[in-house]
Amino acid sequence: MPEAPTAAAGAARFGVPLSGRGCYNARMANVVGIIMAGGQGSRLYPLTKVRSKPAVPIAGRFRLIDISISNCIHSNVRSIFVLTQFASESLHRHIFTTYRFDNFHRDFITLLSAQQTLENRNWYQGTADAVRQNLTFVKDAGAHVLVLAGDHLYRMDYRKFLESHEATGADISVAVTPVRAEQAPEFGVMKVDGRGRITEFSEKPKAAADVDRMRVSEDIFKKFGVPDEGRTHLASMGVYLFNQNVLRDLLAHTDYRDFGREVIPHAIGERLVFGHFFDGYWEDIGTIPSFFEAHMDLTRPLPKFDFYDEDRPIFTQARFLPGSKILASEVENAILCEGSIVNRSRIRDSIVGIRSRIGDNCRLERTVIMGADYFESREDQARNRENGVPDVGVGRDC
């Protein structure tokens, strides 16, 4: 079994300035990040036909996994494991070619695919089981373990998460965000007391009585500095911070497979489990409609999620593509990614992904063009015509 570098050695920079909170940066060196990236994402089909959900392109040039990894890097979490399983080749290739730390420090991003061993012949059976099967790779006995979803769109400073975790003396901290009552059936929702300790948890409550029972009072929102703005419930973001000894004990003495459905509800009665309030933009892009609407928001003048934040950029693969070429076209409220070519067309409220070709006299409105993996040459296009195959991209008069 390969030995992973220690978390305490992972405090180097990734070419971006961090804030001046040196004590927090040093403490984050003792945090190990585990990103759950093995999900099939069946509700996003056909985008997940040949790749896992975290590998799905977003905003024309990024991958969903880039969000969680970038959050880790900016928060000085530099010891990162990515757990993969379903259709992982595309995701592995992206991470391997994108995230390479320098040779003078022991920062790392390690891919851990589901595998058969002498002790275990099973695939990952859920989020908790995936972590259970890979805890042997976490070598620092005193490190905190930060468990993240690899398919959410948000920007979060995990240093503040650790700060509140230590201030409350929590065994486990769960990042929570306010949602409206009609959204509660889509999430795991919880109630907290005046200190922020989680007292009750319900996974995707459906009955009206169950939804009503999980309401959080306005006083709780005020106490933690979060305006309720018509929001009545607290939803789990699928972001957890564990004291490592607690995590090991919970997974060793139960056969629970999932954090949200089993581990966290069980731990509430036995451990100190606190909520960390987060009131920024957060979107679980789990369905085609939510994926589409998140992209439409990106085309607005002031989107809810800002990919243009110079202090906390989202990292992705450096492709060295040429700039976009626009020929006699009209473009309004759109994002045109590098390598795209637009020919005498009109584009409005749309995103055109990398290497996309838009033919003559096209009209794109509220459209997401995912992009292409390669440019077709003239010879390729000639063969397409001979074989009756359309060219990659959008043809003319569409």
Rank of each mutant, 00 (worst) to 15 (best):
M1L: 09
P2G: 02
A4W: 04
A4N: 12
F14S: 11
G15Y: 12
G22Y: 13
G22A: 15
Y24A: 14
Y24L: 14
R27E: 14
G33C: 14
I34D: 04
A37M: 12
G38F: 15
R43P: 00
Y45G: 08
V50T: 12
V56N: 03
L64R: 05
I65V: 15
S68V: 08
I69T: 03
S70R: 05
C72V: 07
V77M: 03
S79V: 00
I80E: 05
T84R: 11
Q85E: 14
A87P: 01
R93G: 04
Y99F: 15
F101I: 07
D102W: 00
D102T: 12
N103R: 13
I109S: 06
L112S: 08
L112W: 10
E119W: 09
R121M: 13
W123C: 04
A130N: 09
A130I: 10
N134G: 05
A141C: 06
L148V: 09
G150D: 03
M156W: 03
F161P: 01
E166D: 10
E166C: 07
E166T: 09
A167M: 07
T168V: 05
D171H: 14
D171W: 07
P178C: 01
A181G: 00
Q183R: 13
P185N: 09
V192G: 04
R195L: 13
R197D: 00
K204R: 15
V211C: 10
R213Q: 11
S217K: 11
D219R: 12
K223R: 15
F224H: 00
R231T: 01
T232C: 05
H233G: 05
L234A: 07
M237I: 03
V239R: 04
L241I: 08
Q244I: 03
L247A: 05
R248T: 13
A252G: 00
D255C: 10
Y256K: 11
R257S: 09
D258F: 14
F259I: 01
V263Q: 03
E270I: 08
L272Q: 14
E283Y: 01
I285Q: 06
T287M: 08
L298Q: 10
T299D: 00
T299E: 02
L302R: 09
P303T: 07
Y308W: 00
D309T: 10
E310Y: 02
P313V: 10
I314C: 05
A318Q: 08
L327M: 04
V331I: 15
I335R: 12
L336D: 00
C337M: 06
R346M: 13
R346G: 07
R348K: 15
R355I: 01
R357Y: 00
N361Q: 13
T367R: 07
I369F: 11
M370P: 00
M370W: 06
M370R: 07
D373R: 09
Y374T: 14
S377H: 10
D380W: 11
Q381S: 10
R383F: 12
R383W: 13
N384Y: 08
R385G: 04
N387D: 14
V389C: 05
D391K: 06
G395F: 02
